[in-house]
Write a protein that binds this DNA or RNA. Structure first.
Lengths: 333, 333
DNA sequence: CTGAAAGCGCTTACAG
DNA sequence: CTGAAAGCGCTTACAG
């Protein structure tokens, strides 16, 4: 195929071992020899074959990333965090979208064997036992948004964030606070719902007719808001489990002739860039997505370097309330 | 490290050649032998080492993707297109962000040698000769947004789109149409500027004091709009070379107390999802970003399969005008 | 300082 | 139908 070390060695009149030493800066090599080899390699436009190198060193300098999807504000920012940290630690990224399903996950993981030094797997939709059954036993891995025994877990404080938002809405005087929950079976969705419910219960407020389920898409947020408006006693605030659904809800309210925030407050979760640009700007719970990516790489890098399995204590990143105009608070940046 | 074919072979009492045949479904193997090997492999949780397989087959089933960045609406959608098509053709994606600079590009390409069957490189900021000097001679590659001799080129009709937008603004009665250009040295930016200039010139309108340069960021769009407003004779329409700058321009106009579209029309380029959510919604030029990704993979896949270098004629994808409220046209979806 | 050789984990003609 | 062997392109003790 392409030019190999053997050809460089022949051209330079040395053994391949010496070429390897020069290219890796390892072992002692005579100055004259080194210069000659470097010149020949450059002239021949030699580039080392990484697959071969990986095979003999069993190091790839690559991290595998398996996400439910590669698209959208959330994953885009996650990739940014992963990419930045990976670049910083001189790692590359082998990415795969594994839209739901244990099969997709298994096949993605299979295809990475021997090509990565560690794995970042995002699994809020995947059952922990499925993950556990498919993660390679020896490979360092960090799991995002799920907890799998034996592997490092990184997640965000969904419950705390949802609780803070619910308290904020209560403090603004809202009582019938509806929640548009995320997809069933999704861990983030479940935790956010739990945070909301806990605070409502503590305030002595029932939530029976105030929870509608969506699936994290804008359309599902629109539909959920419609159902809430059509109910017997419509809410005075809508807290969606993510920003996309909040955007959908805002559209539904507008289409129904209700003004935000005058008639109804709306809030989301994630704090995607879009939120700042809406009119009114969207109150949300900030999730440190890029930090999530960065920390994942850092933990992995440490694990690879130290040889341990990246296990260690689970890490929960804090979320923060971001108050803007959509919830009707007076002071909104 | 992990369990290898040799261990499976030993456990099953056969040679590694036979194990390989079973795993790949190649060559004839006795039913009883096959069943035994499959059982053993499953029991041992054997997963083939891809680096080793790549080395002996010189096929990786992976495509390398080198982008200026991995973040933002544009790249996110491009990745979506790439990922979808890659999955469809059973390829994986090795991605790298190579923020400007020939060095980053060279190092990213280096690190991919031996690990990919083909390359997608996005190069609007990179000079063609730098690309040409760094692309591996034998590897099929498609270049996005640049033209490098010997490699397939895929781009979008920037000039046509900018011309159509300029004509649209003229048709709405605007005369002093300003253009906020993209980064200098960027090919997309240059083509969009050219499209704008050509139509203005054909209409007999001067553009001397109507072009401000930005760098594709929202902030630069804000600053450019400010400079235009502060000029001797402010424009009556602002056409930004991308949506992010249009968003910045809208903010600047709002901060200056000017209403969009009543006082000034604003238009962008790219048609990112955000545009639909703005108030007023942003008129833009739709760029088929995901198609760009999909076509890149399709061409590469064909090249890998057929053994040719993926060269062939350059392909220019059409752009389309998307009229919304920000330019003041009556009928806007 | 330099080279011959073994080995990384696979695949694939070539024999049998 | 099955196995022994060479080879993919590197790295790395081990000699010298």
């Amino acid at each position: 195929m392409s030019v190999t070390m053997r050809e460089v060695a022949r051209q330079a009149g040395v053994s391949i071992a010496t070429v390897s030493r020069v290219l890796n800066g390892s072992g002692p090599v005579g100055d004259e020899t080194r210069a000659r080899i470097e010149a020949v390699a450059r002239a021949m436009r030699y580039v080392p074959n990484r697959a071969a190198r990986s095979l003999s060193t069993s190091r790839t300098h690559t991290l595998g990333v398996v996400l439910p999807d590669l698209y959208g504000d959330f994953f885009s920012e996650l990739l940014r965090g992963l990419d930045g940290a990976a670049r910083h630690h001189r790692y590359h990224l082998l990415v795969a979208g594994a839209h739901g399903g244990a099969d997709a996950l298994a096949s993605a993981l299979n295809a990475m064997h021997g090509r990565v030094d560690g794995l970042v797997v995002m699994g809020p939709d995947v059952r922990a036992d499925v993950l556990e059954a498919n993660l390679p036993p020896r490979l360092p891995a960090v799991v995002l948004g799920a907890r799998v025994s034996g592997f490092a877990a990184l997640s965000v404080d969904n419950e705390g964030g949802a609780a803070a938002m619910t308290r904020h809405l209560l403090a603004l005087g809202h009582r019938r606070i509806a929640h548009v929950a995320g997809a069933g079976g999704n861990r983030d969705a479940a935790e956010r719902l739990a945070g909301y419910r806990a605070v409502m219960a503590a305030a002595g407020l029932a939530t029976d007719d105030l929870v509608e389920r969506g699936d994290f898409t804008e359309e599902s947020g629109y539909a959920a808001a419609r159902r809430l408006l059509d109910g017997a006693a419509p809410p005075d605030a809508v807290f969606a489990a993510n920003d996309a659904m909040a955007v959908g809800a805002m559209s539904a309210l507008r289409d129904a002739g209700r003004r935000v925030p005058d008639d109804l407050a709306v809030a989301g979760f994630d704090d995607i860039p879009l939120g700042r640009h809406l009119t009114p700007a969207l109150t949300s719970v900030h999730v440190p997505i890029d930090t999530l990516g960065r920390r994942a790489v850092e933990r992995l890098q440490a694990a690879v370097e130290d040889g341990d399995g990246a296990a260690g204590r689970p890490e929960i990143l804090p979320t923060t309330l971001v108050v803007r105009a959509s919830c009707g608070a007076r002071a909104g940046p």
